[in-house]
């Protein structure tokens, strides 16, 4: 059996679902970030797989995957800086305890 586009799409779907589950169920802000990283990775697999199987001559998919990796790094840096700031002022990084803006 040849490995085709569908195989990669299935793997990336599973990875995306796992990441989504992590984002929805975790209390720790850092753990939520980790879930987001998993989802971004799933999207990257999709992009590269489409690049390989639908338009092998072009590199558009890889280009966008690289852009997403860059943005993921930005997102991690800013997100973790926010976590650090929140921890410094509120002494917690559990999102359900960060509720000073909540009425």
């Amino acid at each position: 059996m040849q490995v085709g586009l569908t195989h990669y799409l299935v793997v990336s779907t599973l990875l995306f679902s796992i990441g989504l589950y992590g984002v929805l169920t975790r209390r720790n802000a850092v753990a939520i970030l980790m879930g987001i990283e998993l989802m971004l990775n799933a999207v990257n697999i999709n992009l590269v797989a489409f690049n390989r199987y639908i338009a092998p001559g072009a590199v558009g998919g890889q280009t966008f995957a690289l852009v997403i990796i860059t943005l993921a790094a930005c997102e991690a840096a800013v997100g973790l800086a926010l976590v650090m700031a929140a921890y410094r002022s509120l002494e917690t990084i559990h999102v359900d305890e960060i509720n000073v803006m909540k009425w």
């Binding site: 720790n28 850092v30 976590v83 990084i93």
Partner: peptide, 20 residues
């Protein structure tokens, strides 16, 4: 380079600097 080498280390670092 970015994910395994940088982002994960950053995440670990923040985990260890915060309480959890």
């Amino acid at each position: 380079l970015i994910y395994a080498g940088a982002i994960t280390v950053l995440i670990l670092f923040v985990i260890m600097l915060t309480q959890g």
